[in-house]
């Protein structure tokens, strides 16, 4: 008992106090910084991008497809492609994830998330989420679990993952949605009481990501139901996730 207490005191408090302005290490690959005028159309980046996230003329990166692997940056000899360590990479509409030249952090923060009054009103103080893992790689799941650890401590904002869709205000989907998971996902959605939000977490869920050409997927669910938030990453960093959700509920 005393040893346990001693350990507790030794560890101190480790939570990140200001989640909205937390420092991210500079090496993190976040918001793309593109410079069209430097691009000489050599297509080196196009050929190396594993997900088709990149487009030329003008240069753009679709964060909904991007795995943030950094291969394009390494391939680009003119320095037209860079990534900043800005980690708030969520948007309420799919198109906003497509980043073109001159997109700054301030600008992206301003336009990416449109707070809906109803969502803010109903879920602003507490949001309980059911997570559905559907054929990703477990990378996003590990990061979602990390959201609840002592460093990120998402629970302090009233945001939690719950065990049953019946207790949930919304679902968080990770993975590209395999045929084998399609019916369970739909079941889970139907079991979640209204009103509810649907959140796509990670490149896989948003676009199929690295698995987009797989013949084993069934993404019909996404055509049928409205999506409230897209959170980019591969995997999604806990700070990206928590800030995305806070944005969605207008906090």
């Amino acid at each position: 008992m005393f040893d346990t207490l001693k350990s507790r005191i030794y560890q101190g408090n480790q939570f990140i106090k200001d989640i909205k302005n937390a420092q991210m290490r500079e090496q993190f690959r976040g918001l793309p910084k593109l410079c069209n005028s430097k691009c000489n159309n050599c297509e080196a980046c196009l050929n190396i991008c594993p997900t088709g996230a990149l487009k030329l003329n003008p240069l753009s990166i679709d964060m909904g497809k991007c795995t943030f692997c950094g291969a394009c940056k390494n391939a680009c000899k003119t320095g037209a492609i860079n990534f900043s360590n800005f980690y708030k990479l969520s948007a309420t509409s799919r198109e906003k994830l497509i980043i073109t030249e001159n997109m700054t952090e301030e600008e992206f923060s301003k336009v990416a998330i449109e707070v809906k009054k109803e969502i803010k009103k109903v879920f602003g103080k507490s949001l309980k989420l059911r997570q559905v893992s559907a054929a990703g790689c477990n990378g996003c799941e590990m990061e979602l679990n990390a959201c609840s650890n002592v460093n990120f401590d998402m629970g302090r904002f009233g945001i939690d993952f719950v065990a049953s869709p019946r207790h949930a205000d919304g679902i968080v989907i990770t993975g590209p949605i395999s045929k084998n998971m399609a019916y369970a996902l739909k079941d889970c959605y139907k079991s979640t009481p209204n009103p509810k939000v649907v959140i796509l977490c990670g490149a896989c869920a948003i676009s199929g990501g690295i698995f987009q050409n797989s013949s084993e997927l069934d993404r019909k669910f996404l055509e049928k139901y409205p999506i409230d938030l897209y959170i980019a990453g591969c995997p999604v960093h806990p700070l990206t996730f928590i800030n995305g959700i806070l944005g969605l509920i207008g906090r």
Partner: peptide, 8 residues
């Protein structure tokens, strides 16, 4: 349930 046909 996680089958994505990775080998192919």
């Amino acid at each position: 349930y996680q089958n994505r046909g990775i080998e192919d």
